[in-house]
Design a protein around this nucleic acid. Structure first.
Length: 283
DNA sequence: CATGGTTCCTGCAGGC
DNA sequence: TGCCTGCAGGAACCAT
């Protein structure tokens, strides 16, 4: 599942491969991922345009055009971009093809089709569709104090809060579990009972975990093959809790547990990550 | 308005 | 062998 580090690896690959390239043609093989006013309108909005360097906020990725508009992309669960020769075999689940003016082809591949592409008129700086997304921890203007206070002001629980892309962006289920483990915090810790210090530890841990993952993903990147599930390091990343049910905690040896949470999975060390004591008489 | 539950999608693993 | 169910989850959407 592409989260911030994976999307950033893809962005860097795209930056090297599509910046300055003009789109000569677009082929929509499957309509679903084109979340715009039909494939024809989408194609009309992209063909003849020239890509500037791709940008990112959280898990959103966009390709500014030189005229101020942009093409916005989200990888969803399984989205990938590839650069291929036009005649190369199509990978399974290839959805949209972009013929570039250097003779190569940009391909959007997405098995589950939770991802998608759309136009963003006047969206080169920031697509309107992304305006409600909070800054991510890698943004130079990210304000950790503000994020801490926004989390503590919520009437919710810590994992829900850090997965809320309007509070802090870029974190998905994997990094949420990993950073909560690192910060020794239970996913169901009420945000109203979070000390500022604990909230800070969670956010610092989130950036640390994502930084380490990005470092791994970036090193093995193949410049001709932009793929979040392939050589990006995504699967080689070392995980302390996510998907590690039954394995010993790297800190204390206790077996990692899987809980059902938000119709999803939450992995934690039940010894390192404890809930605060219930307040007597509190409902 | 904030919060939390539901839904969209497909392929694969596991049970019978 | 083959069918069925459950599971993976980002984020828009909807009900409360």
């Amino acid at each position: 599942m592409p989260e911030l580090p994976e999307v950033e690896v893809v962005r860097r690959g795209l930056e090297k491969n599509v910046t300055g390239r003009m789109v000569c043609d677009v082929t929509v093989l499957r309509e679903r991922p084109v979340r715009w006013d039909g494939p024809d309108a989408f194609k009309a909005g992209v063909v003849g345009r020239t890509f500037a360097a791709p940008r990112r906020r959280g898990k959103y990725l966009w390709f500014p055009f030189s005229d101020g508009d942009a093409m916005l992309a989200h990888l969803g669960m399984s989205g990938q971009f590839r650069i291929d020769a036009p005649g190369a075999d199509l990978a399974p689940n290839t959805r949209v093809l972009f013929d570039l003016d250097d003779g190569r082809q940009l391909r959007f591949v997405d098995q589950r089709m939770f991802g998608g592409l759309q136009l963003a008129p006047q969206g080169a700086q920031l697509p309107a569709q992304v305006s409600h997304i909070a800054l991510d921890p890698f943004d130079e203007y990210f304000n950790i104090e503000q994020a801490i206070e926004r989390i503590r002001a919520k009437r919710s629980t810590i994992k829900r809060a850090i997965l809320d892309q309007s509070v802090i962006s870029g974190i998905g289920n994997i990094y949420a579990d990993e950073c909560l483990w690192r910060a020794k915090t239970h996913y169901d810790h009420p945000t109203q009972r979070l000390t500022a210090a604990r909230a800070r530890r969670v956010l610092v841990a989130a950036k640390e975990v994502m930084t380490e993952s990005l470092a791994q993903g970036g090193t093995s990147f193949d410049e001709l093959y932009v793929d979040v599930n392939g050589s990006s390091g995504y699967f080689s990343r070392s995980l302390n809790v996510y998907g590690q049910e039954g394995k010993p905690c790297a800190r204390c040896g206790t077996q990692i547990r899987r809980d059902s949470f938000m119709n999803r999975s939450s992995y934690l060390c039940p010894k390192c990550q404890r809930l605060p004591r219930p307040i007597h008489g509190d409902k």
